[in-house]
Design a protein around this nucleic acid. Structure first.
Lengths: 172, 172
DNA sequence: CATATGTAGATGCAATTGCAACTATATGCG
DNA sequence: CGCATATAGTTGCAATTGCATCTACATATG
């Protein structure tokens, strides 16, 4: 992954910070720093994980996300719109990603009885196998990049803080 | 922004976690959760910020990052490779982004005397103005999305945790 | 039933990204 | 100097993304 939208501190912002948060448009220096770190770190980590998969001759992270959801869903499969809710991919992105996954026989599309517009996506055996191989690499990346750098309680603290930044979606 | 590589918990990972971190490839449940949150939240936030810029008829975040670095650099400008170090963009991405910025007269390319291969990029007046207008929107996004959701000390705590996940680069 | 509106998903096209190769200048070294 | 290698930056081409639109089916309402 080589798209990096990295942000940096705005020099002027730290000069005069006085008013309370709710009344101002300019963020506090602390907010800017946290934002900048979040942007930079998340991109570095994604890139590292993507590189690891690439080095292993495996598909990109996006494929893992979809295969993971479908594996969890089991034989019943999921509707594309449910994948959109869970993964936050854009609609057209899911549409095309599923087409690629189907072309690789990692998923199959099934007509759904009670809604003529829809389809159900089900992971195949090959898809499960691919997901397993991806997890071997991806999981190692997570262990190295995050698990090895913070203690369990620090990881919990980080999760709690990030949770507060989350925006509600249909799935979580 | 509509590319979302969202990760989710691996169901099997939480079943039997016993060995110590250093010996295993499978990450702890806490590491997986922190990773998943980081991926999900960072993408949501980027998307929100990008949407805000789009709604304001402004260029994407990537432009801000480059304009910001160039504005900080002042009249001396920066070499493209310095921008790469600071922003973490891929080399070919910077090359083309600068071409677009130059086409919009937001930056100018200057031949550099002591290295015939290189060039120096300098922000123009129009570039500074565009950066200012972008910051009005972008800064508000940061204030709303991050500044308004965590206290100053929580923001500091978040920054410190994220710092530990950072990977060394030429610039930081 | 007929029309209007909403939802599920696909797709044409332009822009961007990623990869790999390429040009051009610089530097190290015999 | 002359060649090998490294660095700075660009570019052709394929793949992916984003936008806008489009088709098809579903649901609501008179």
């Amino acid at each position: 992954m080589h798209l990096h939208l990295v942000v940096n501190l705005d020099a002027t912002a730290s000069i005069a910070y006085a008013a309370t948060m709710s009344e101002r448009a300019t963020p506090s220096p602390e907010a800017i720093k946290a934002w900048a770190r979040l942007m930079r770190v998340s991109r570095q980590l994604v890139e590292r994980a993507e590189d690891a998969l690439k080095d292993g001759g495996l598909p990109p992270l996006a494929w893992y996300d979809v295969l993971h959801e479908l594996a969890e869903a089991g034989e019943g499969g999921l509707r594309p719109f449910q994948l959109i809710e869970r993964t936050l991919f854009a609609q057209y992105n899911i549409s095309r990603l599923l087409a690629r996954l189907e072309a690789d026989r990692l998923v199959e599309k099934l007509r759904v009885a009670d809604d003529g517009r829809g389809q159900t996506i089900r992971i195949t055996g090959k898809g499960r196998e691919t997901r397993r191989r991806m997890w071997a690499v991806y999981g190692r990346s997570i262990a190295e990049l995050v698990g090895a750098r913070l203690s369990t309680s620090e990881l919990d603290a980080l999760s709690r803080l990030l949770r507060r930044l989350r925006h509600p979606t249909a799935s979580d």
